[in-house]
Simulated assay, not measured.
Amino acid sequence: MLPSLFISHGSPMLPLVETPARDFLAGLGGTLPRPKAILVASAHWETERPTVNAVARNDTIHDFFGFPRALYELSYPAPGDPALAERVSDLLGAAGLASEVDRSRGLDHGAWVPLLLAYPDADIPVLQVSVQSHLGPAHHLQLGQALAPLRAEGVLVIGSGSFTHDLRRFRGQGIDTPEAPDVVAFSDWMDEALAEGRRSDLLTYRNKAPHAADEHPTEEHLLPLFVAMGAGGEGATPRRIHKSANYGVLRMDAYAFA
């Protein structure tokens, strides 16, 4: 059975810049059984209630500005799967989570940037499910738990965000700038809590993890971690499958839950 994954997608420039995180994602697809479809909970799609996209083929959304032209020329025209979108909606409803279906939205860079590296042929159906940043970690754990049956159906469930995401310090930093001490402290605390199965601490990380509000001034980039955690199933063991940092403030860690 496929694991669920949390991946850090970093800057939209990731496909065009040589970094350890880029190399990790470029090899990720080869380490997993080929999925029947991929469902991504991306930090870059925030809605009032959970929403899944249902299109025949995904448009590539370039939801950023000020980057080199070469980035805007990249596309990821993966097929969608409207029937699977209805299945996702049904699972959410059965878990008591009212949801909606969006029949026009394509893939934002939280989905297509990492998938361009991991599955460059764009020949696997891809869907997205939105996050609700106003509802916090426990809601997203529940959302992931509702999606857990999909793993047995050959669907790769991915939470795509960033292990740390303080963009206030991002601009002007070199990509290989050493990590700030507060970034290290927060990331080490999170990794220990994951490894030790301290779910209650993780759900209340904002009050317990060092520098939590600094590393995540807003929560949307960490909430996909909780989706992946829930989708891993009851008793899932987290395994860190990548650790690196870009620009000194963006931790690019990735985890598998199985």
Rank of each mutant, 00 (worst) to 15 (best):
residue 132 Q to Y: 11
residue 132 Q to E: 08
residue 133 S to E: 15
residue 133 S to H: 15
residue 133 S to G: 14
residue 134 H to F: 12
residue 135 L to I: 14
residue 136 G to D: 06
residue 136 G to I: 02
residue 137 P to N: 00
residue 137 P to Y: 00
residue 138 A to V: 01
residue 138 A to R: 09
residue 138 A to Q: 04
residue 139 H to T: 12
residue 139 H to N: 05
residue 139 H to G: 06
residue 139 H to L: 06
residue 140 H to Y: 09
residue 140 H to A: 00
residue 141 L to P: 01
residue 141 L to Q: 05
residue 141 L to C: 04
residue 142 Q to T: 11
residue 142 Q to N: 15
residue 143 L to R: 10
residue 144 G to E: 02
residue 145 Q to A: 04
residue 147 L to G: 03
residue 147 L to S: 05
residue 147 L to C: 05
residue 148 A to W: 05
residue 149 P to G: 03
residue 149 P to N: 02
residue 149 P to F: 07
residue 150 L to P: 04
residue 152 A to W: 15
residue 153 E to H: 07
residue 154 G to I: 05
residue 154 G to W: 06
residue 155 V to D: 06
residue 155 V to N: 07
residue 156 L to G: 02
residue 156 L to C: 11
residue 157 V to K: 12
residue 158 I to C: 01
residue 158 I to W: 09
residue 159 G to A: 12
residue 159 G to Q: 08
residue 161 G to H: 00
residue 161 G to I: 02
residue 162 S to V: 15
residue 164 T to H: 14
residue 164 T to V: 06
residue 164 T to M: 08
residue 165 H to I: 08
residue 165 H to R: 06
residue 166 D to N: 14
residue 166 D to R: 13
residue 169 R to S: 11
residue 170 F to Q: 08
residue 172 G to Q: 04
residue 172 G to T: 14
residue 172 G to I: 01
residue 173 Q to S: 09
residue 173 Q to D: 10
residue 173 Q to R: 12
residue 173 Q to A: 05
residue 174 G to V: 08
residue 174 G to K: 15
residue 175 I to Q: 13
residue 176 D to I: 05
residue 177 T to R: 11
residue 177 T to Q: 10
residue 178 P to Q: 04
residue 178 P to L: 10
residue 179 E to P: 03
residue 180 A to M: 09
residue 181 P to D: 13
residue 182 D to I: 05
residue 182 D to V: 11
residue 182 D to Q: 13
residue 183 V to D: 05
residue 184 V to N: 14
residue 184 V to P: 04
residue 184 V to T: 09
residue 185 A to I: 06
residue 186 F to W: 01
residue 187 S to F: 05
residue 188 D to E: 13
residue 189 W to L: 00
residue 189 W to H: 03
residue 189 W to F: 03
residue 190 M to Q: 05
residue 190 M to A: 02
residue 190 M to L: 15
residue 191 D to K: 11
residue 191 D to L: 04
residue 191 D to V: 12
residue 191 D to M: 11
residue 192 E to M: 15
residue 194 L to C: 02
residue 195 A to N: 07
residue 195 A to V: 07
residue 196 E to F: 13
residue 197 G to I: 02
residue 197 G to Y: 09
residue 198 R to F: 12
residue 200 S to E: 15
residue 200 S to T: 12
residue 201 D to S: 10
residue 201 D to A: 15
residue 201 D to G: 07
residue 203 L to R: 01
residue 203 L to C: 04
residue 204 T to G: 13
residue 205 Y to T: 07
residue 205 Y to M: 07
residue 205 Y to K: 02
residue 206 R to I: 00
residue 207 N to E: 14
residue 208 K to S: 07
residue 209 A to P: 01
residue 210 P to N: 03
residue 211 H to R: 14
residue 211 H to V: 09
residue 211 H to W: 03
residue 211 H to L: 07
residue 213 A to H: 11
residue 215 E to K: 06
residue 215 E to R: 14
residue 215 E to Y: 09
residue 216 H to W: 03
residue 216 H to I: 01
residue 216 H to Y: 04
residue 218 T to E: 14
residue 220 E to T: 01
residue 220 E to G: 08
residue 220 E to N: 10
residue 220 E to S: 06
residue 221 H to N: 00
residue 222 L to A: 06
residue 223 L to E: 02
residue 223 L to M: 12
residue 224 P to Y: 05
residue 224 P to E: 01
residue 224 P to W: 00
residue 225 L to K: 00
residue 227 V to K: 07
residue 228 A to D: 09
residue 228 A to R: 00
residue 229 M to A: 13
residue 229 M to S: 12
